[in-house]
Design a protein around this nucleic acid. Structure first.
Length: 505
RNA sequence: GCGCCCUUCGUCUAUCGGUUAGGACGACAGCCUUUCACGUUGUAAAGGCGGGUUCGAUUCCCGCAGGGCGCGCCA
């Protein structure tokens, strides 16, 4: 019931015998427990596209009470690094995408991959190929020149032991290639892309085992997904062609083909492909930019997937309604503005203490963060917490939140920014002097009493409240914007406020 | 070159043949207001092009154009 890829040797066979489905009929059969997997190659950080792929895998598994496995595809011994593995694992953890069971390292399974290749050799569904790299290159050139697909021509496909012995005698190395069907079609019924068909003549005999005895990615993936009991493969649609070739390997081994879902890629803001050179960042970069993991998850889930008009999804909500059939097929652009908007939304709804903790966590990652960290005494922390309601309303990222909090940690005399200087330059000093006199007389330092004093001054001088609030704000924070001025006065405390105000008179 | 995929406001998307083509972000304008935000109200803003099928196409089919991905003893 799981085999959804159909291979036919002759085009006239089976074409109608097996039902193809259209994407509007797609569904996720949930008879068996679902097993998904996220299978990054550790050649770099966990980028945003990988994060979304992991998220979709995670959501599908959770939705159906299944499991998501994590497999590190480290068969490329040259490019795989322990740093990358760590970055990927840290990234997943930060995003809250937990996997089930132990991390599986693909390279450790190389003996099993070899065994399967040997088995295929014995079955006659694979063969030894002694072609040299030069021959292969020449083949591709010739095919290109002739306007044909650039593919291996199968010259070793039907060679016998005598030919093999001769090649061995010449000191040639062999690879094991799949004996792929030469006629007919390979059909993939993809849960996102619908039915996709390839003429087998356009697909060549791919290499299963390299001449050094190590498996290729194409082979290792199939063996591992099979052995791990993966029922649903969700990955980027850059793997769509691979799906056809991998299907042939499943068929050759007589294994059921898992369901597949090839999700569209994420492009950069300018529509260009997201590459390491071009705007692709690791998730740790998003953390450093001050995004909340739940906000990033929410943003990511809406890239290529929708549930009616709903924009905000709690984790429970998204796991309850996530469905592959609502995944679109076109690439999406990454939009920082919308991410910020969603992040701001989540920040406003985050508990003050939790938000403070999140902000404190990224202090080491941002400019001047260490300074704040050092200044963060228990008293300061209490102050920061008290200011949080006014602060979080005005920030779209934790970085902005921290920036907006700087006045709390500033030392007297404050450094004024340009707009603050401008505000104080007018008749600010005189105004401040009068306010200082009023504030000194405030009986108890609370918002109501302070506001009363300031309003009294406004009335006495015939000035609007704003005309008083701005000089106060400038003197107290060094800026032209801040949380409500009475909140600022209360949080800063009487002595500090009067000191800062006198500094500017 | 060969193959595959994609194409609705600037962006993310809804629409499962009949809608004033909806929502969100952004933009613009108003309200709120001690600044900035938040909130709130409103406005502008979309079916790539050409053929079919149909009483009727954004929706189904074909072609074209544009974009993307793949074509390794990389993953």
């Amino acid at each position: 019931m799981r085999g959804h890829v159909i291979m036919v040797e002759r085009a006239d066979q089976g074409r109608n015998a097996h039902p193809r489905f259209h994407r509007k009929e797609r569904h996720v059969p949930a008879s068996d427990p679902i097993v998904t997997r996220f299978a990054p190659s550790p050649t770099g950080f966990l980028h945003i596209g990988g994060a979304r792929t992991a998220l979709f895998n995670w959501l599908l598994a959770r939705r159906h009470g299944g499991r998501m496995l994590l497999r590190i595809e480290d068969t490329d011994r040259v490019r795989s690094t322990p740093e990358a593995i760590e970055a990927i694992i840290d990234g997943l953890k930060w995003l809250g995408l937990n996997w089930d069971g132990d991390v599986i390292y693909q390279f450790a399974r190389a003996p099993r991959h070899r065994a399967v290749a040997e088995e295929m050799l014995a079955r006659g569904t694979a063969y030894k190929c002694y072609a040299t790299p030069e021959e292969l290159e020449a083949m591709r050139e010739a095919a290109k020149a002739a306007g044909k697909p650039m593919r291996y021509d199968g010259r070793w496909r039907d060679k016998g032991p005598a030919d093999h012995a001769k090649a061995e005698a010449e000191g040639r190395k062999f690879v094991i290639r799949l004996k792929a069907p030469q006629g007919g079609q390979t059909i993939v019924n993809d849960l996102v892309q619908g039915t996709v068909t390839w003429e087998n003549e356009n697909l060549d005999d791919l290499v299963l085992l390299r001449s050094d005895g190590n498996p290729t990615y194409m082979h290792a993936v199939v063996v591992d997904d099979h052995d791990m009991g993966v029922t649903h493969i969700i990955r980027g649609d850059d793997h769509l062609t691979n799906a056809a070739r991998q299907s042939q390997i499943y068929e050759a081994m007589g294994w059921k083909v898992p369901f597949m879902a090839h999700i569209p890629l994420i492009h950069g803001p300018d529509g260009a492909k997201l590459s390491k050179r071009h705007g692709a960042l690791g998730v740790e970069a998003y953390r450093a930019m001050g995004y909340l993991p739940e906000a990033l998850r929410n943003y990511l889930v809406r890239l290529g997937w929708a549930h009616g008009d709903q924009e905000i999804f709690s984790t429970d909500e998204m796991t309850a309604v996530f469905d592959l059939k609502n995944v679109g097929r076109s690439a999406a652009r990454f939009d920082y503005t919308k991410l910020e908007s969603i992040n701001g939304h989540y920040m406003r709804r985050t508990d003050d203490a939790a938000l403070l903790a999140a902000a404190r966590d990224i202090l080491p990652l941002i400019e001047d963060g260490d300074g704040i960290l050092k200044a963060l005494t228990p008293e300061k922390e209490a102050q920061w917490l008290a200011a949080m309601p006014g602060l979080k309303e005005r920030a779209k990222t934790l970085v902005e939140l921290i920036d907006g909090s700087r006045f709390l940690f500033a030392q007297r005399p404050l450094v004024m920014d340009e707009k603050a200087i401008e505000i104080l330059a007018k008749d600010g000093k005189a105004t401040l002097s009068r306010l200082v006199a009023r504030l000194e007389a405030v009986p108890t330092w609370d918002a109501a009493s302070i506001e009363e004093a300031v309003r009294a001054e406004a009335e006495a001088s015939g000035m609007k409240l704003g005309a008083l609030a701005q000089p106060l704000r400038a003197a107290l924070t060094g800026r032209s914007t801040s949380p409500g001025i009475f909140e600022v006065l209360v949080v800063l405390g009487r002595e500090e406020c009067l000191g800062r105000l006198r500094d500017q008179t």
